[in-house]
Each structure stands twice: as C-alpha cells, then as structure tokens.
Design a binder for these strands. Structure first.
Length: 226
DNA sequence: GCGACAG
DNA sequence: ATCTTGTCGC
C-alpha cells in the first residue's frame, strides 16, 4: 500500500458511510482503541468499558511491525491493521468503538473512526486531543459545553469540554451514529478526566503492554504477534 | 510558492 | 507519536 493509493481508497469507501439521525441506543459496554509505538513497532489495545460504572471489563492487545508511515490524513492506514487484530481478540464483538483520532472531521470526511467503522460495519466515532480540520468558536467553561467545528461550510465535529477548566477534546462521528449522540457519550464517559475513559484506558494499556514487551524477553510468551 | 498538518 | 523537568493546583 502506497500513500498515493490511500486517498483513492478513502474516496471509494466513503459512500458506504451510514450517518443516521440522533437517537443512538447506548449499549452496556463500549470499546476504546489506541496504538502506542516504539520506532516502527506498534502495540494496539482494545479496552471494553462498562458504561454504567466506567470500569474496565476486558483488555485485548496486538503488536507487530508497522510499515505505513504517519501521514496527516492517512492515519487509518497506519493504525487499522493492529487495531483489527486487537479487536479480533476480544471475547465478544463490540457494540460501539471509540478511536483516538477523527471520523468525519477529515479532509475527505473519512478519518480513522469512519474507516474502521465501515470495515467492521460497527457504530464508531473519534475523540481527538488536538484540532485538525474545522474552525470553532470559544466554548463556555462548564463541563458538557461544546462548539461546532465547521470546515468548508460543513459541521464536521464538535469541540467538547469534558471537564471544567480543561482544554476541550474534539469529537466527530465515524459510522452509524450521529454527532449529537457522540457528544453526549463523550461527556458521559468522562466522569473524572479530560479524556473519556475508553480512549484513556486504551492509551494506558497499549503503553503498558509496549513497556512489558521492551523489558521482558522478546520471545516466549511475548513473541509477536501478541 | 509556503506553511500547516489526527497520531 | 516520541523526546523530557520542573511546576502549579486540588
């Protein structure tokens, strides 16, 4: 896969996106995803979070060499292989996946969350930590307040204040869920920290797994892929 | 042409 | 993403 071919693939998959009106039925659990790297080696984590208690129910990881480089706009091609491996190791299929990055708030309206959602035909959305595409105005300081992110005249996402007095996070719909539902879920899943629990725990566990891989033997029970 | 650019 | 120390605040 060459970066030059990637954008064309995004355009080809884009028509498969399903963008429903608000009214997503919140499932008992959701899955947070993230990938941590050490040079060209990556570890992906899929963490199942109980929506009612925000506790970790299950953690699955996958690791291996990553060949696709980081290119803004093409993050999905770098992260999807390991994320799919990690998701396949969960004991049961997710009802909703939450990615560390963007969905529709993307140059071609097809960021990581949308791409993964379409490939797996699962509801998905993204929660990013920094701005990318879309301008937004000042957000009230109260937890739960937000401002639309507008790019080229379209509302592509929302900057959401998950805690009073902290920078906002950037929410965008991925697949089979409306932005309004993504917004309320992002706030609901952030009871204590700026980053919602699913993505926050995925970050923690992918880092932890990479550290174990570096310290322990690079073979035996730590042999890749795992 | 130049700078910016999810992770 | 990753490289990295101290520091401010609850």
């Amino acid at each position: 896969m060459l970066p030059s071919e990637a954008a064309a693939i995004q355009e080809a998959l884009r028509p498969r996106l399903i963008l429903p009106p608000p009214g997503f039925e919140v499932p008992p659990t959701v899955v947070g995803l993230d990938v941590t790297y050490k040079d060209s080696f990556g570890v992906a984590a899929a963490v199942v979070i109980d929506v009612a208690t925000l506790s970790v129910v299950e953690v699955a990881t996958a690791s291996g060499p990553v060949s696709f480089p980081y290119v803004p706009g093409l993050l999905a091609f770098r992260e999807i292989p390991l994320l799919q491996d990690a998701l396949a190791r969960l004991s049961s299929p997710p009802s909703l996946i939450i990615c560390d990055g963007y969905g529709l708030a993307h140059p071609r309206r097809f960021g990581l969350a949308s791409h993964l959602g379409v490939l797996l035909d699962l509801p998905s959305f993204g929660i990013a930590k920094t701005p990318y595409v879309g301008a937004f105005s000042d957000i009230p300081d109260a937890r739960g307040s937000w401002s639309d992110m507008v790019d080229d005249g379209e509302v592509v996402g929302r900057a959401v204040r998950t805690q009073k007095g902290v920078k906002p996070v950037f929410v965008s719909a991925g697949h089979r869920i409306a932005l309004e539902d993504c917004t309320s879920l992002a706030v609901r899943l952030s009871a204590r920290y700026r980053i919602p629990e699913p993505t926050r725990q995925a970050d923690i566990h992918s880092r932890r797994r990479l550290a174990q891989w570096q310290h322990g033997p690079h073979g035996g029970q730590f042999a890749a892929p795992g």
